[in-house]
């Protein structure tokens, strides 16, 4: 097992390197001159040239990449000109907030999605199945940002149950109950789409498994139906559900960008959008690489979980 984890970690190195290359190449496509963008109205030819030299932009592309990569390896992601602070500090702080939001949403959608999928499959064509299928269909059709806005109108403005936005109350907040109160709506809105997708997939994975021969064997052994569904079928279905959880984690992380905007959540997504609008390229670059690398590590966890479940994976 330890060997497998180590192997997966080693195999993540080229993937993360690939990510840096892709990000670097995309950023290199930027038309015009970043220095001009940074300097804005201060952009005299001398200033631009000086900044270009400072940023290393006068060097060839390959060399620039390795300088950038080398700096990142030492923890230097550069400096955000719009915030005037190191990129890594800002990203790490923001990512923490995103992690709380996306992590909660992910746990919610994984748990509810699988539960709904299994119930739906076990009661195929029954009322529970029809109900779940319908709710799921609505869930995957509604834009999360619109759903978030409607939740604010209903729960914060009309019913006044929950705070409108932010992560903590400005006065007297900061403790865990305060965080949870602020977390309910954004995490809920964020989880809806992924819950729907996971529920759909779990349902079809369960139906696929339920007609396999080994399910007939379990029944022929006299295993009670509950055991057939929850032990035999779900265990086998998890083999196809787990990779989807990995993909959906990426979707939750992506959806967090919208939710952070709607709920003024101080996360990395909002930071990225602001940075793009301000053309703060170093911040965008650093944020994207950092979050993508974290996602790669998360997917290693998913693979390890998969290998624990499925003994046939021995690579």
């Amino acid at each position: 097992m330890g060997g497998y984890i180590l192997k997966r970690l080693v195999s993540a190195v080229p993937v993360i390197l690939g990510i840096t290359v892709i990000v670097f190449l995309i950023m290199a496509m930027i038309p015009g001159d970043p220095a001009t963008a940074i300097l804005g109205s201060y952009a005299t030819p001398e200033n631009v040239e000086k900044l270009n030299r400072d940023l290393g932009l006068d060097k060839p592309l390959v060399q620039r990449y390795f300088i950038w990569l080398g700096n990142m390896l030492t923890g230097d992601f550069g400096r955000s000109f719009s915030l005037n602070r190191p990129v890594l500090d800002e990203v790490a702080e923001r990512f923490n907030a995103t992690l709380i939001l996306a992590g909660t949403a992910f746990v919610l959608c994984a748990f509810l999605g699988i539960l709904a999928g299994v119930i739906s499959a076990a009661r195929q064509y029954g009322w529970a199945d029809k109900g779940i299928t319908f709710v799921v269909l609505i869930g995957i059709s509604v834009p999360s940002f619109f759903l978030g806005m409607m939740m604010i109108l209903l729960f914060a403005v009309n019913l006044r149950w929950l705070p409108v936005s932010g992560m903590f109350a400005i006065y007297g907040g900061g403790d865990l109950p305060d965080l949870l109160r602020h977390l309910v709506m954004p995490a809920g809105a964020l989880a809806v789409v992924a819950t729907g997708v996971i529920a759909r997939l779990s349902r079809s994975a369960m139906l696929e498994v339920l007609r396999q021969d080994f399910i007939r064997t379990a029944r022929a052994k006299g295993v009670p139906e509950r055991g057939v569904i929850w032990r035999h079928a779900l265990k086998a279905a998890m083999v196809s559900i787990i990779p989807v959880l990995g993909i959906q984690a990426g979707f939750v992380l992506s959806g967090a960008v919208y939710i952070e905007i709607v709920f003024q959540w101080p996360g990395v997504g909002r930071m990225l959008v602001d940075a793009i609008l301000k053309r703060d390229i170093l911040l965008v670059q650093g944020g994207v690489v950092f979050v993508a690398a974290c996602y790669v590590m998360f997917n290693i966890l998913v693979d390890v979980a998969q290998s624990l479940l499925d003994p046939r994976i021995k690579t």
């Binding site: 993937v15 690939g18 990510i19 892709i22 990000v23 995309i26 950023m27 496509m29 930027i30 038309p31 993909i247 984690a249 990426g250 979707f251 992380l253 992506s254 959806g255 960008v257 997504g269 990225l272 959008v273 940075a275 793009i276 609008l277 053309r279 390229i281 965008v284 670059q285 994207v288 979050v291 993508a292 996602y295 790669v296 997917n299």
Partner: peptide, 22 residues
């Protein structure tokens, strides 16, 4: 393809928009 899928998709989209402009 795996490399591209290693990104949460919106990061890639944001990076592309950042590069090409809004």
């Amino acid at each position: 393809v795996d490399m591209l899928m290693a990104f949460p998709y919106i990061l890639l989209a944001l990076a592309i928009v950042a590069a090409l402009g809004t």
